[in-house]
């Protein structure tokens, strides 16, 4: 029963995620209790990409690129506070670039980031959270980083 419940919860969350972001996110489930981003690594040159690439741009080999789960911890490289938001987004919100230990610097909305306390280099962790509403007012989810729990 427990497994079935968690499976349907995962499915419910999966349905809320923006379809463009869905292939990038591994929800909590059998592999891990925490969400992860899905990147890719070239088996030949070892370079890591996010989002995943089909062809390694260094080696130009398709069959060499494999999916990998990226670290769900990162460090804040820079950020800004959006006041004039695109349609569907609830301002103000923080958005920035996060450094992952794999040597990736990635774009990410930030959750639970109090404007007074947000700081470059702060430790962050990945969460799946609401990013905006669609035209019908339905919540659309994606990934975010929030301050890491101690």
């Amino acid at each position: 029963m427990t497994t079935d419940d968690s499976g349907s919860e995962t499915q419910a969350l999966e349905d809320l995620i923006d379809p463009k972001l869905s292939p990038l996110i591994q929800l909590p489930g059998s592999c891990s209790e925490k969400p992860h981003l899905i990147g890719s690594k070239c088996k030949s040159c070892k370079e890591i990409f996010f989002p995943k690439r089909v062809i390694c741009p260094n080696c130009l080999k398709e069959e060499e690129v494999e999916d990998i789960l990226l670290s769900n911890k990162g460090k804040l490289y820079t950020y800004c506070i959006v006041k004039a938001a695109p349609l569907g987004f609830d301002a103000p919100y923080a958005i920035g670039y996060v450094d992952l230990p794999e040597g990736l610097r990635i774009f990410s909305p930030l959750a639970e980031c109090d404007q007074e306390h947000i700081k470059i280099n702060m430790e962050l962790e990945l969460v799946v959270d609401k990013i905006r509403e669609d035209e019908t007012g339905k919540a659309v989810y994606g990934y975010k980083f929030k301050p890491a729990s101690l």
């Binding site: 923006d18 463009k20 959006v82 695109p86 919100y93 774009f107 909305p109 905006r132």
Partner: peptide, 9 residues
């Protein structure tokens, strides 16, 4: 598209 759905401009 990817960046825009997350609030990029």
């Amino acid at each position: 598209e990817l960046l825009t759905v997350m609030g990029f401009s």
